[in-house]
């Protein structure tokens, strides 16, 4: 009976999760393109990946992107949540406006940021240099500033997600505790680090987990804003995998990239979930 009751969930999981992941793993062991046909090649695709300069460039930027954007989002998200938590009138309105960037589809946000950083009529150039057109620079044309622009776009969009979860955490902080701390003469920063932060840490760890997983899968921002130019310096792994899989039709090689992304995310999630679990237990 138990087996029957569980069957739908298990079948669903197998059909939509286990099977695609396994079949991508199997595909990554083949050299497979419409031209050459499909032939088993062992770990050749992975060996090739390790020696592919463009892949390593995208790998580097993927890690930079994840670390920079997620840490900025965590900081900005908590600040936004703290600010909104203090608002007494119109809290609903503020809360709704915080979700707004999160609700904008990433492609739309990416197009918007592409305009913001445009070399001719972008607002960033206008704010920095006013009417001195010759001072205008093309943010998306140079690797360093283009990387910054992509990170900023992600921070703008995803801080609101962290803020939302942090806000939910903040509502569980008992007012009496803060009152008592205040009576004991604890200043605002002491109250934040000694009371608020430890109490909302579980919520923040959940937000962190989601953000790290999500940031590793970034694709659309890069696709719209730079297409990885120049030569993959602003490319991310997922975009590199797309290039190999679709325009170049190297299904095996593209699958190997997808598997690497999957493994990185899986390992990181396990680490995060374990720390998360332990923290929850001890506190």
């Amino acid at each position: 009976m138990g087996i029957i009751m569980m069957a739908p969930a298990v079948l669903f999981l197998c059909g939509f999760l286990v099977f695609p992941v396994l079949s991508t793993m199997v595909n990554s062991l083949y050299r497979d393109s419409p031209l050459t046909g499909r032939e088993f090649c062992g770990l050749d695709n992975y060996r090739r990946l390790a020696g592919d300069g463009q892949a390593l460039d995208t790998m580097e930027f993927t890690f930079i992107f994840v670390m920079a954007s997620v840490s900025l989002e965590m900081a900005a998200g908590v600040l936004i949540a703290l600010a909104i938590n203090r608002v007494v009138t119109g809290r609903g309105f503020f809360r709704a406006s915080v979700i707004l960037p999160w609700a904008v589809p990433t492609v739309v946000a990416a197009i918007m940021w592409k305009y913001i950083f445009n070399d001719q009529y972008g607002i960033v150039n206008y704010l920095l240099h006013g009417d001195s057109l010759r001072m205008y620079s093309a943010w998306l044309a140079r690797p360093s500033t283009a990387r910054l622009a992509i990170i900023l776009a992600d921070v703008w969009k995803s801080s609101s997600f962290v803020a939302l979860i942090a806000l939910a955490g903040l509502q569980t902080v008992p007012e009496e505790l803060m009152e008592a701390a205040r009576m004991d003469g604890a200043g605002p920063s002491r109250r934040f680090f000694r009371i608020t932060l430890p109490l909302i840490r579980p919520a923040l760890l959940v937000a962190l987990l989601f953000r790290v997983m999500d940031a590793f899968r970034v694709f659309d921002l890069v696709y719209v804003m730079t297409q990885g130019a120049p030569s993959g310096k602003t490319g991310v792994l997922q975009f590199f995998g797309y290039l190999k899989m679709f325009p170049e039709q190297q299904y095996g090689y593209g699958s190997a990239v997808a598997v690497v992304v999957f493994l990185i995310i899986a390992v990181l999630s396990v680490i995060l979930v374990r720390t998360l679990g332990r923290r929850m237990m001890t506190e």
């Binding site: 070399d119 001719q120 010759r134 093309a138 044309a141 730079t226």
Partner: peptide, 10 residues
């Protein structure tokens, strides 16, 4: 300088 706009690479 001035030959092409700064954004020519985009």
């Amino acid at each position: 300088d001035g030959m092409t706009p700064p954004g020519i690479l985009t």
